[in-house]
Design a binder for these strands. Structure first.
Lengths: 242, 242
DNA sequence: GGGTATTTGTTCGTATGTATT
DNA sequence: TAATACATACGAACAAATACC
């Protein structure tokens, strides 16, 4: 060979893999960004494109990047795991993952619920509900947009209680609901509406992960219907079957 | 007025609502199809556009149609409920809803699993897996595209067994797995790739509902990792928290 | 990417029959 | 009976979102 390859103990592709992983971890290549094209990376590391490809394949295999033919190579968002069980409390879930959570109230009103919501809440279609629109953020990034219906005679003023406490659980406590549990979760997905995409700070090409949930008090009486739209780019729901 | 309003007991908009509901039920307007535009409906029923809009709003409220500004009004697919629990069996779920189910094998191969899959299956990354690609149909419409990994030494030939039986459960029985249960389900969503959209016969603008699942045998040993891509237009996952 | 046509969304105004006070 | 409020219905114009070329 004219220029012999240096035989270090680690192969070149593995060295490149490690370097790129570090670049991603350091934020040099932020989540969602596109990596330089393969020839460019090959030039940077002074290797053949095939060697770069091997490193990229390894990173893709480990879930750090996604390689898309014709488009490029992208740094994947680390998905926030959102475990769902009988006792699902947003802030607990997030803090357990050592992240910071915040939920803000976008809107509150009083209205009659759509028919399917009334059925889920087991109330009359012409009865009133307090409707809250909330946006949850994790580490400063919006994650989840939720429309919540609370039966009105019982939960009048829960908007104020939520404003004061910043938490649904605590707001419910003010109304004598010391504890509650999730009865059912229905999960689907649909294209994001422009407003969803804007609020969730997500590309319009990405869908929203829709989950309907029904929470009941300890007597089994429905207290909340929630329609959540999650940033599919960044959230993953986890259901453990115990 | 030159032509006075006829006062039947039911308002015109409600009569129109009922008629359209019937048209949808009868299949005159099939699921997914677009309704005539508002002026056209107004002409058909001999009313003002506002009156039609009121009827449409009622139908949308009840979940029969979806109204999309600039695009039109569409008959919603009745979502197939896919309840997920410890014992999730595709054909049982479907037949319980009085529908017909069929799963076909698109592809089978033997390969080393990607690292996350190997971790979920608790096997070495360089061990082999039997990989099946299946497409499930309900009432003739494709619903779910699944890539399944089975540890290879144990489940060699499961592709043949599946071909024979047409069922994963029955194929597993041939390998001594009389029963199994689902340990965890992870749900997310992403834009559909062109191949996904084609196989699922879904518009490219609609996302896929991605669910990863791990099934274990009665000893708790992982036997299958599945990566399912569901037609988000037509499937909804239901998790009951008992 | 930009302009045009299509389609739904919103807001005026007007009129009339029904129920309540 | 009269006054009032409310639901229903029609008409016109413009705004906003989308599709198409």
């Amino acid at each position: 060979m004219s220029s012999p390859v240096s035989h270090t103990q680690v192969p070149a592709w593995r060295r490149i893999e490690n370097q790129l992983e570090q670049d991603i971890a350091s934020g040099a290549y932020p989540a969602g960004s596109r990596l330089p094209v393969e020839p460019e990376l090959a030039a940077r590391f002074g290797v053949n494109r095939h060697t770069v490809r091997r490193a990229l394949a390894a990173l893709a295999d480990r879930g750090f990047i996604s390689i898309e033919q014709g488009r490029g190579t992208f740094v994947r968002h680390s998905m926030l795991d959102y475990p769902i069980g009988r006792r699902t409390r947003f802030s607990e879930i997030i803090s357990r993952q050592n992240r910071s959570a915040r939920t803000q109230l976008l809107n509150s009103s009083i209205a009659t619920p759509p028919q399917p919501v009334a059925r889920d809440l087991q109330i009359a279609v012409d009865s009133l509900c307090v409707v809250l629109e909330t946006l949850s953020e994790v580490d400063g990034k919006p994650l989840n947009l939720v429309t919540r219906y609370f039966p009105a005679p019982r939960f009048d003023g829960i908007d104020r209680a939520f404003q004061d406490t910043g938490s649904i659980s605590k707001a419910l406590q003010r109304f004598g609901v010391s504890d509650y549990r999730r009865r059912v979760t229905r999960v689907s997905a649909r294209p994001a509406r422009p407003e969803d995409a804007a609020l969730l700070q997500q590309p319009r090409s990405w869908p929203v992960l829709v989950s309907e949930s029904i929470n009941v008090d300890l007597n089994g009486v429905p207290i909340e219907y929630g329609l959540a739209r999650g940033a599919a780019e960044r959230v993953q729901l986890i259901f453990e079957t115990e």
